[in-house]
Write a protein that binds this DNA or RNA. Structure first.
Lengths: 247, 247
DNA sequence: TAATTGTTGTCAAGGCGTTGTAAGCTTCAA
DNA sequence: TTGAAGCTTACAACGCCTTGACAACAATTA
């Protein structure tokens, strides 16, 4: 079941100090004024600072001046083509994530995007939410520090980069889906996670299996990782809610 | 649901997300009676309250009257085009998520969805589950309010994310329904809450048990959380009115 | 073909709502 | 003030029915 319609009023309890980050700057390179406006509004309502440029040249200038955290780039631009802009930016800042907007025909082969150095792309009829999700993912990806990639606790150790899991020092083979599920649970340890949340976060945007599928994957994880699968200590079920992973 | 999105307890198939919310109202704007019916059933079985309108004008009226949590909008409508409805709604309520139903040809232009302000879309034919997931995702997203996740007072402490409650440092096990009730009360502390309000906000729309059910849950909460359940200090009853939670 | 992923059926357990009864509060008349 | 009547709330016990565990099967993919 679930996110939220009406935030509860009067939640005047102890406000927890959340880590305040400066608004990430996003450079939008787009020539169509209508799309410019829409993109600006889209990202700004999400808390990003937006800078808009209409052509490749000013995009490059803006890029060097403001050092954005991510770039949203339309491939078809006047003056300097979007592809050149992409290459140029990647040459100067390889780590800077670039999400490309393109017509489906523009990227008939995805190889092209790789050459360009783009991190992700969305094709023509795209939903704003999807674009947002990709930009966020790109940001998250580059921002990921290589420290929390190995986690160990109890008798289990995980290396997220190598995709290796060991239990009592013995390698355990997890399938892709199992691993993703496991990773999400570990990275959200101690929190109650609903099946819907798992479906959304792990299974992703296109696939929507039933909630029982989640049960089965939890089952597998228990069988492979729990000392006593019949009384799980790590993969706990929260009746009527979902699951919770504890170390 | 996640993330947080969601219908409340007792939602049949899927489990709900943690943050308490009332059964979210969804405004469905669709002219085809067959699709109307299908959509209505789809969302209602998932615990949402559904309002259906067949054309743009009544959709706008309904939108202003009922303040839905999300809108599912068919792009091709009689009278007022779906696009106008979309723009209009977004102009009045930018945060209100709109998921658009469309034929593939309708959104061939990438500009369209962005300009309209739609949050997401599904093209016909679409799978019910996909539509559901998108609506949920949209709901979850807008409701991402960084409320206080940990609250403590007197001898009780609550962690809403972990769904953990402690009394004098000792963990207390609450059932899902008890927890939701407790959460709502805590987040509306010091206010008198009627049983009907509790039923609406915690139990949701379809499950409408008797008011005595509420009494029983209050009873359980008192037994589990009050120092002296026979003379409650936190869960106070306001005779003829309902209950009031005080710290 | 083999392996992974998703679906479906069955079973068991536990939560949730109902109900009956006792106790408490409020009102009003005497 | 007292008492009784009428409504509201407290509490416990019980039964249904949702929920989750699990395995076998089907579908998909490589």
């Amino acid at each position: 079941m679930g996110n939220f319609a009406t935030p509860i009023a009067g939640a005047k309890s102890t406000t927890q100090a959340l880590p305040i980050r400066p608004a990430a700057r996003i450079l939008v390179v787009e020539d169509d004024p209508a799309v410019q406006k829409a993109l600006k509004r889209l990202f700004e309502t999400e808390g990003y600072a937006v800078e808009v440029q209409a052509d490749g040249q000013s995009a490059m200038e803006s890029f060097q001046a403001s050092a954005p955290a991510a770039v949203v780039l339309d491939l078809r631009l006047p003056k300097m083509s979007g592809r050149e802009v992409c290459k140029e930016i990647k040459a100067h800042a390889p780590a800077l994530p670039i999400v490309v907007l393109s017509a489906a025909s523009d990227v008939s082969d995805k190889v092209l995007l790789l050459e360009l150095g783009a991190d992700d792309y969305v094709t023509k009829p795209f939903s704003p939410r999807e674009l947002l999700a990709r930009v966020r993912a790109a940001l998250r990806h580059t921002a990921r520090v290589p420290e929390a990639q190995i986690v160990s606790f109890d008798n289990i150790s995980v290396d997220f980069r190598k995709m290796e899991v060991k239990r009592d020092g013995v390698p355990v083979i997890l399938t892709a889906q199992e691993f993703k599920t496991f990773q999400f649970l570990v990275q959200n340890a101690d929190r109650v996670i609903t099946r819907d949340e798992l479906l959304n976060e792990v299974w992703g945007y296109q696939n929507y299996p039933s909630t029982r599928t989640v049960d089965n994957h939890i089952l597998k994880l228990r069988q492979k990782l729990e000392r006593d699968p019949s009384s799980p200590t790590h993969f706990r079920t929260v009746h009527g809610m979902g699951y919770k992973f504890v170390r």
